[in-house]
Amino acid sequence: MNEVDRPARWPSLALEAAIALVLQSTWLHRLTFRGASIDLLVVFVAWYAATAGPGRGLVFGALCGLAEDALAMQTGVAHTVALALAGAVCGLGSRFVLPDSVFAIAGIVVAGALVNGAVFWAAMSLGGYPAGLGGLHFHRTMWSGLVDVVCFLVLWSAWAWLRNRQSIR
């Protein structure tokens, strides 16, 4: 197993998720592009699921989603279901595409963002969210896929740079 496909440990995952949640609820809402803002949790769940498989991806996604639902308003368990399924799909995706390059994982992150958006808005709609906004949510989900993959590439570059520095030392 090389450095790219080694799954992270649970304590570091929990810390990453907590930081992502706090950043999303304080700073990241300022960085929006065509109505879509960066969803760090989706990026982390997809990244982790791509290296750890569908089972762990589902569990990590469900836990992250539950925390997001607890902090959000009027969402019930929509985030929980959406992120859990996104984690499972990303984990399954990694069985068809070898996640040994940054671009393979980037593709999985895009898939995760799209699945997350689709399932989230479907769950919200079932929960009674006003109908007739499907087109808007579709566009927002598409843009969020783009924004999330850019965010992933930036994070991955930083992570790879840190790894290289450590290995040089």
Binding site: A36, E68, A72
Partner: peptide
């Protein structure tokens, strides 16, 4: 104001 909706799906503040 200390926080916003983490996913931005609902326009809400904490």
């Amino acid at each position: 104001v200390v926080g916003y909706d983490p996913s931005g799906a609902v326009n809400a503040i904490t």
